Amino acid sequence: MNLALWISTGLLAAVFLFAGANKLLIPREKLAKAPGGGWAGDFGAGFIKALGAVEILGAIGLILPAVLDVAPVLVPLAATGLAMIMVGAAVVTFRRREPGHALLNLAYLALAVFVAWGRFGPGSFG
């Protein structure tokens, strides 16, 4: 169980680090033109930058507390926060009638829920 949780956590951290960096570094207009990035046109540049920063912080929160053994309870909290972001992302993509992207968001949601459940319960660090 612990190995599955670490693999899931690593995958989630990599995805959110990459996605967050893209939101922080790529201008809103360019994001909106990218495949699957049409949602960016519905939000302001400030919101997108803030979302990117939160995603990066979430990715860091998935890994560092456990690796450093400092407040490991932050791992399931970070996973819960990222799961809430994915709920919002799924809603936005469903409303935009982009089922492929919505399913991808739901897959990331399921992974985040698995990590949160595992680290709060049977695979907790305590």
Results as ranks from 00 to 15, higher is better:
S8N: 11
V73K: 05
P76C: 10
Y108L: 15
I56P: 05
D69L: 08
S8C: 14
L109S: 02
A34G: 04
V87S: 02
G38R: 06
A107G: 07
E29H: 04
K30F: 03
K30S: 12
A14K: 02
V87G: 03
A79K: 06
F43Q: 11
A19L: 11
L106N: 04
H101S: 15
A53L: 15
P35N: 08
G36D: 02
M1T: 11
E29C: 01
L74N: 03
S8P: 02
V54D: 00
A112P: 08
S124P: 07
A116E: 09
A40W: 04
T93D: 06
L3N: 10
A83N: 09
G121E: 03
N22I: 11
K23E: 13
G61S: 06
I60A: 13
F114Y: 15
A112K: 04
V87W: 10
L74E: 01
L103A: 14
G37R: 09
G20S: 09
V70T: 10
M84G: 08
M86L: 10
G88D: 02
A71N: 12
R96L: 15
V15W: 13
A112C: 01
A50C: 07
G81R: 10
D69G: 02
S124N: 15
A112V: 03
G100K: 09
L25A: 11
F114R: 06
P122C: 00
T93Q: 14
G88A: 04
P76K: 06
A89Q: 02
A59G: 14
T9E: 13
F114N: 09
M84R: 06
G41D: 10
P99S: 02
G100A: 10
L3M: 05
A107T: 14
D42N: 13
P122T: 11
L3D: 04
G46N: 13
L77G: 07
S8W: 05
V73P: 00
F125L: 14
